[in-house]
Amino acid sequence: MTSGWSIYVIVLVVANIVGAAWLLFWVRSTSGGASGKPQSLGHDFDGIQELNSPLPLWWVYLFLGTIAFAVGYLIFYPGLGSFAGVLGWSSVKEHDQDVAEAQAHYGPIFAAYAAKPISELTKDDAALHIGQRLFANNCAPCHGSDARGGLGFPDLTDNDWKWGGEPETVEKTILDGRKAMMPAFAPALGGPQGVESVIAYVMTLSGRKADAQLAEAGKPKFMQICAACHGPEGKGNPVVGAPNLTDNIWLYGGSHDAIAEGLAKGRFGQMPAHRDVLGAEKVHLVASYVYSLSHGSSN
């Protein structure tokens, strides 16, 4: 706040308090009421008059009390322009204090879970329950509340892992995120005809029907270009996140057109890092929950 605004606020606040006190004092009596009865204010509605009846004195004391409260408040708390108040209170400090309190309360709970391996937590209902809540709030928007993903977002329940399915790898994926890149290979495959042949070959890898001649033509191209990441058998490579092409699980859809689009334009998947979002201890619980989906009895 600039000092100009600060002065403006101070003047307004002080003027209002002083004005209210003065008004209270100024209207304490009215002259000319020799009869001792409340005077009419001159408003008459069907014979009912509005009288200038006295206010109970204790009520006035309440009013004075609010003025005293206002003065006290302005001394102890921020309110007078940029004056911070003698207590030094601020909403940021209060928030930090609340966070510290919550940390003191919940910290040990998460720390205890963090000390246990994921293989053990997948058998702990309470831990999985917390993991499910965290998943619902942080992961479900992309992976779905049932964790079965969708187009472009992996199904986490099928035990088919792009980056490796060991508990530690799953945890690392959540902590630091993943960036997958499938380059656009259409030119390198020799144009539309080459792309068609590779599609045919890739489909046969999962045992799907395809033109045998076309597939035969695609095989060398696959070995030459695709096998570098997906492996000569098309089983994929978790180090670079290359999917297994033999299990008929398709991240971007398994139709001919979907595969063609991937080959022509490439695919760029990204899993954001959650280390700073959730913290390592909570990620540990989320990883346990995710791991349990394909290794436990739950749903």
């Binding site: 009596s29 002259s31 004195l57």
Partner: peptide, 15 residues
Amino acid sequence: DPTGFASDVALYAKR
């Protein structure tokens, strides 16, 4: 009379 203004009508009445 809580206000001390005997000639005026006090608008704050003591209980």
